Each structure stands twice: as structure tokens, then as C-alpha cells.
Simulated scan of single mutants.
Amino acid sequence: MHTASTTELTWRKSSYSGNGTDCVEVSDDLPGAVPVRDSKRTSGPNLMFPATSWTAFIGEIHAERIS
């Protein structure tokens, strides 16, 4: 897996965060992995998900099995 610092990544606000202050940011920069962080704590910790797991999670949201 890629070992670059997550500070080097391009982050975007998740479309599921809405316009509120509780926002999740994700990066599409790492092949095979999806880093996720709290937009209020950009220098704080982040979670790293395998891309296949993230895709399955988003699919469940689209199917409205997770809200």
C-alpha cells in the first residue's frame, strides 16, 4: 500500500455530508484505499478503508439500507 503522508493528498467533502458542520472528507488519490477524515480536524487522525469495502459501504447507502 502507498505510504505517502495524508497531508499530501487532495481531500474533498463527501457528498453525503450536506451543508452542515459535521463533514467527512475523503481522498481519491490512493489506489486501492480510501482515506476518510473529519473536516474540522484536518491535521487529526484519519481512517483508511480498502477501496472495495468503501465501495460496498457507499452501495449500501445508495440502496438506503444504511442511513
Rank of each mutant, 00 (worst) to 15 (best):
R41F: 14
P35I: 01
R12V: 11
P31H: 02
P35F: 01
A4W: 03
T10K: 13
I61R: 14
R41E: 14
E8Y: 09
I66L: 15
P31V: 07
K40L: 01
H2K: 15
C23V: 07
F57E: 03
P50D: 03
S39L: 06
Y16T: 10
R65L: 14
M48H: 15
L47Q: 04
T7I: 09
S5I: 07
S67G: 11
E64G: 08
G59W: 04
T21S: 13
D29M: 01
S53E: 10
D22I: 08
K40F: 02
K13A: 01
H2D: 08
C23L: 05
T6W: 06
G18P: 07
A51C: 04
G59N: 09
S5Y: 02
T3K: 13
G18K: 15
E25P: 04
S43Q: 15
W54Y: 10
T42D: 09
V26W: 04
K13G: 02
T6N: 13
S67K: 15
T52I: 04
S14A: 07
I61H: 13
M48K: 03
L30Q: 05
N19Y: 12
R65K: 09
W11K: 04
P50M: 03
L9Y: 01
V34E: 00
P31F: 06
A63M: 12
T52L: 13
P31I: 02
R37Y: 08
H62C: 12
Y16V: 06
V34H: 02
H2P: 10
A4G: 14
R65Q: 11
V26Y: 03
T52S: 11
L47D: 07
V34M: 12
A4I: 13
T55R: 13
F49Y: 15
E8I: 05
S14Q: 06
H2Q: 14
A51V: 01
E8F: 10
S27G: 01
V36T: 03
G20Q: 03
K40Y: 00
S5F: 11
